[in-house]
Design a binder for these strands. Structure first.
Lengths: 146, 146
DNA sequence: ACTAATTCGGACGTGTTTATCCGATTAATT
DNA sequence: AATTAATCGGATAAACACGTCCGAATTAGT
């Protein structure tokens, strides 16, 4: 859909990990993939990527696992996760796939789409990890639904 | 990006064809793919699909080519093209990729995303082919930019 | 009738995303 | 020291999206 599957799994994982972090728990790959309903080995790759981008902290060995730096919970935005995985391509996306679609040289849909794009980007840019975990803890949101 | 490449090419093609139709010209695959900058053979497949979905009319043989039923120019919406190619998946799309994300059982991003989704869908649902070709004829929009 | 221009349909090839597997490494527990 | 539980990194496989090729069918013009 709008984001790659990698990005979807990655975001769900980060939210779950952040939630556990708030409860002072580190969480393992196995636990994560079970809780968010994602393939384990594939999720491992995604988490590695997020560690490299300093969104997650990992510790090896027994009792190891993943966590989020608590100080960063309010600083990390959805945008950071999405950009870490899918790259910054969303900035200049064009509905019709033109490489250089701009206000000056627009595709026919440009001006009707720009508001949607702006809203999407500001949503990604304003939604914090902290906020999302709160919704989880309220018990009113889910990371796995079939 | 947001739509598949197939869908991007397809939409560009339909807009170009509609523009030619307005000038009472049928247009050939070769012409189309040149004008919108898409791979010819691949575009052929997409156009076939759009013919099957009654968005385009094709005529075989010498002097053949593609056109849009003029009476439909104001009836065909961006949505119809997108749905014909990518399917109706956009209706229930979830940022986090959950199959059954809804107001009742939402993912943590659901309520922040629903406005964006609504705007996107209404944009697709309100933008007519006629309107898009007008922007082309004004010379202020492009279907090919590199 | 013949030729040229075109779409149609099916098979095939390529590339990217999604996904798995396994050995190496690290750290806690016994 | 040995065992166990975990992440890391590289190779590989499967599925899907993207793209090509070519012969068959159709139509217009000569």
């Amino acid at each position: 859909m709008i984001f790659s599957k990698t990005c979807e799994y990655g975001t769900r994982a980060v939210i779950y990990i952040a939630q556990q972090t708030k409860n002072n728990k580190r969480t393992s790959l196995k636990d994560i993939s079970e809780q968010i309903g994602s393939p384990e080995a594939f999720t491992a790759k995604i988490l590695q990527q997020l560690v490299k981008h300093n969104i997650l902290i990992s510790t090896k060995g027994a009792n190891g696992g993943f966590a989020v730096d608590k100080k960063k919970l309010k600083r990390i935005k959805l945008m950071h996760i999405v950009f870490a995985i899918d790259g910054g391509e969303y900035r200049d996306m064009c509905v019709l796939g033109l490489k250089k679609c701009s206000a000056k040289d627009p595709c026919p849909v440009h001006h009707k789409f720009k508001h949607v794009k702006k809203d999407l980007l500001s949503m990604l840019n304003n939604t914090t990890l902290d906020e999302l975990t709160n919704k989880m803890n309220d018990g009113k949101s889910f990371l796995k639904l079939d």
